[in-house]
């Protein structure tokens, strides 16, 4: 147990994390970009068209991964928030700062691609279906988190406030999703589901799987890269960052 605890503490040290991130980050980013390029090309050019929706269903290879990431990233923010509050690990706050904008951009992208996909499929840019509505609320959760972060001037106060909000938000997400699902069944029983995964043939869902994995890898790589930047910024006056600066610019 002692070694596990030691490992946890060492991981929590920004300098150690920076070293790990510098090594691992580019690999994850590269792998993610490669997988996404392969998956999207596969989905665009080689997957068979949907018998109902024709070719517009190809937006799925972009829409579904971003929607999944939008939720996963927020869950991770909640987990990081818990780590910050329980163990006071500063690194967790840096990860939140690094990951939140990416999560927000994924949520926005999921909404935009959903709207573009909705036009040829439902005949309307915006339909208040359960998933769209949950995703919209999710976007506002990201807005609130990032706005709170920027509003509080003191770094440490801002970090802990955001951690609490992320945890509260994460607890709320299932309740929001459940209530939105229910709201929909009350108002209009939805008969049309966009993607019924089991009915999809492998040549349609395999590219989707690769795309989802690619987005996760990209997320990991970007969290490494962006957290490194936050570490440099916050530790700019420490000896090791100064040494690094001299080494990089000489």
């Amino acid at each position: 147990m002692a070694s596990l605890k030691e490992w946890w503490h060492r991981l929590g040290s920004p300098r150690t994390f920076y070293a790990i991130a510098q090594r691992a980050g580019p690999w994850f980013t590269g792998l993610g970009v490669a997988a996404i390029v392969v998956a999207l090309t596969w989905g665009l050019a080689f997957a068979p068209p949907d018998y109902q929706q024709g070719n517009s269903f190809r937006i799925m290879y972009l829409h579904v991964p971003t929607a999944i990431l939008a939720q996963s990233v927020y869950m991770m923010l909640g987990a990081a928030g818990l780590v910050l509050l329980v163990w006071r690990m500063k690194l967790a706050d840096m990860v939140i700062v690094a990951a939140a904008p990416f999560g927000m951009s994924m949520t926005a992208l999921a909404l935009v691609t959903g709207a573009i996909w909705g036009k040829p499929t439902w005949g309307a840019w915006w339909v208040w279906d359960a998933r769209t509505t949950s995703m919209l609320v999710q976007l506002f959760l990201y807005f609130g988190l990032i706005a709170l972060r920027q509003a509080i001037p003191r770094e440490e106060t801002a970090g802990r406030a955001c951690a609490i909000l992320a945890v509260v938000g994460t607890v709320n997400i299932p309740i929001i999703k459940y209530s939105v699902d229910w709201w929909l069944t009350l108002h209009q029983p939805s008969t049309f589901t966009l993607t019924a995964a089991p009915s999809m043939p492998p040549e349609m869902y395999l590219p989707l799987l690769v795309s989802v994995l690619g987005f996760y890898a990209l997320f990991a790589g970007l969290v490494f890269a962006r957290t490194s930047n936050v570490i440099l910024d916050r530790e700019r006056s420490t000896a090791w960052v100064r040494a690094l600066v001299r080494e990089q610019t000489s």
């Binding site: 999207l40 665009l44 068209p49 024709g54 070719n55 517009s56 190809r58 937006i59 972009l62 829409h63 935009v112 691609t113 573009i116 996909w117 036009k119 040829p120």
Partner: peptide
């Protein structure tokens, strides 16, 4: 298949 504006703008 006629869905070019949607697919390409999304991508």
């Amino acid at each position: 298949g006629g869905h070019a504006p949607y697919v390409w703008s999304a991508y």
